[in-house]
């Protein structure tokens, strides 16, 4: 423990601290990730109100019913809102300038009532832009399976 430099009534110390968390994704997201491995976009549907959740969640929060029905959605969707990132986070946790600005959009897949946040590669992005998912060659069941979305012609 060292005295705070130049500060009255302050003591400085360092505490080693390296936590490892193991967050469970849950039953519904596990099925979503399994679907990605087979290039399927799986959403869950509430039987009571018909809302379709993508990404899926166990409970329709409006009805408090379990969403027991699964629907496969198309790769196409619409940009609901978007931003363009100029700064990203490097592996060491520091901020860094991106080589190219990156569009990040809230995309509502056709047939879904909720949005997913995805990368979009497009010259001009706008609210209402129609986009399509681009799969990785070998999707491995994590979110990276969908590498980026491109504008529909």
């Amino acid at each position: 423990m060292k005295s705070g430099e130049g500060l009255k009534n302050v003591k400085r110390m360092s505490v080693p601290f390296a936590p490892v968390f193991n967050w469970s994704v849950g039953n519904w997201m596990e099925q979503f990730f399994d679907g990605l491995k087979q290039k399927k976009i799986l959403a869950s549907k509430c039987a009571a109100c018909g809302r379709v959740y993508l990404p899926p969640r166990m409970i329709c929060e409006r009805c408090f019913d379990k969403t027991e029905e699964w629907v496969e959605l198309p790769e196409t969707g619409t940009v609901e809102t978007y931003t363009m990132a100029h700064v990203g986070v490097a592996d060491n946790g520091e901020l860094e300038d991106l080589p190219e600005p990156q569009i990040i959009a809230m995309v509502k897949h056709d047939g879904a009532d909720t949005c997913m946040a995805v990368r979009v590669d497009a010259q001009d992005c706008n609210v209402g832009l129609r986009v399509k998912a681009v799969w990785n060659a070998e999707p491995d069941g994590v979110l990276d399976a969908l590498s980026a979305y491109r504008a529909l012609d």
Partner: peptide, 24 residues
């Protein structure tokens, strides 16, 4: 509580670390 999601010692450490100011 869903303790298995957390780091068992991190949970207590964050409690303990938060106690550092009172310790001092």
């Amino acid at each position: 509580e869903k303790q298995s999601d957390g780091d068992s010692t991190a949970g207590l450490n964050t409690v303990a670390v938060a106690d550092m100011a009172p310790f001092l």
